[in-house]
Each structure stands twice: as structure tokens, then as C-alpha cells.
Design a protein around this nucleic acid. Structure first.
Lengths: 101, 101
DNA sequence: AAATCTTACGGGTGACGTAACGATC
DNA sequence: GATCGTTACGTCACCCGTAAGATTT
């Protein structure tokens, strides 16, 4: 599982289609198709239901979406807090609301 | 930031050295050195303090370690829960304690 | 025929392993 | 001299974009 794949997955879910997501992500549709296919194989479950014209999240996809968002959000938090700690951890200890913790 | 880099980082922190971590991860030491360097640059803070013979976590590294573990743990949870949901979500709805929800 | 996702193929970037280097005990 | 982390370099896999295919409206 790769961060990039999670970003792709979330964008497709938000846009409701590979084409829109590709446009927003500035990549080609086939890249998304391949990466989502790889992600689904690793997860072991179908995340999108390719239904005729639009794509919908399966129940597994809905579950996965929340976790994927949490992972990416946590990754950003990790970077921010590490920088705060590096700068003497002043913000982290004295102003925790600035770093989410 | 990549999942692989987080795994490398955590293993080095646990083993207290690049050599031990490389042995456990079945990769060569230079790979770890390069990837950790890249991770530190992206984070914007020094995560390890290369002190003579052993490596120690900086304060930024300690902060980052907790988040890194949470991210990898969450990634595993995401896969497990997605599979549960795919299997009809019986466990997820009726036995949430089995899937952490 | 237009739009959408999927599969096949070639090129560029990145990760890895081996080898060489500097530093420490 | 032995051990550890870093840097340089060649090789290989992976990701991406283009092109072609299948399906639906």
C-alpha cells in the first residue's frame, strides 16, 4: 500500500469517477485504473463498483475511505509535529492546539 | 513520504542502528541511509542523531515515531476492515471490538 | 458517435545492491 | 583493524503517458 494510491483512491471517491479525478490530480486515467486495481488486490476487496457510467464506493470502499483519510491526515500531522519538536518543541508543549495534539 | 520509509524508520529506531535494522529488514544498509535521509528532508527535521557508534532518536524523531507507528497500524486496520465489510460487514457491525471500531 | 474504464507498450525516474570512503573504538 | 554510517555507480523494477480495446448511452 502506498500513500499515492490512497490519494488516488480518495480523489476518485470524491469526484465520483476516474476521469474527473485524473483531471484534478493532473495524471492520466490509466494510471488511476492501474493503481486502484493494485490497491484493491492488496486490500483483498473491491473498493469501487464500476457501474455503467459512474463509480460508487462499495461497502468495503466506504470503510476504507475513512481510514485512508485518517492516514493521510496523520502523515501531515507527523511532519508538522516533528518540525515543531525540532524547533525546540515550544509550540508542541505550550500550544498543542496548533499541532492538533 | 512513503510507507516503506516509515517501516525503515521504525525498525532503525527499534534496533538502535542501521546495521541491525538492515539485517532484520533484509535490505542493505545504504538503502536505509538514503531513504532516511530523504525522509528527514521531507519532514524538515533531523530524526536520528548519528552519535559515534549508535543512533538515537532526536526529539523530533520521538514525536515522529508515534505517528509513524499509528500510520502503519492504521493501514493494516484499513485493509482488515475493508475485507470484513466486503464479506458482508457482519463482523464490523455486530462485533466491532474485533475490528477496533 | 461520445464518454468511460481497462489493457498493452515504450520511456523516464526511483529503489536496491555492490563497491569505495570517512570516522570511531 | 574492525565496525558503523555515508556516498558513488550500475542495474532493475515501478510509475506514468500514449495508443488501442471493450462497453454503454
Amino acid at each position: 500500500m502506498k500513500m499515492r494510491q490512497l490519494e488516488y483512491f480518495i480523489t476518485i471517491a470524491e469526484e465520483g469517477g476516474f476521469n474527473r479525478a485524473a483531471n484534478r490530480l493532473h495524471v492520466a486515467q490509466p494510471s488511476l485504473s492501474v493503481q486502484i486495481k493494485a490497491l484493491e488486490e492488496e486490500v483483498g476487496a473491491r473498493l469501487f463498483e464500476r457501474d455503467k457510467r459512474n463509480v460508487f464506493l462499495t461497502q468495503a470502499g466506504k470503510q476504507f475511505q475513512q481510514h485512508a483519510r485518517a492516514i493521510l491526515s496523520l502523515a501531515e500531522t507527523a511532519k508538522v509535529e516533528a518540525r515543531c519538536a525540532d524547533a525546540g518543541d515550544v509550540a508542541g508543549r505550550n500550544f498543542p492546539h496548533l499541532v492538533g495534539g
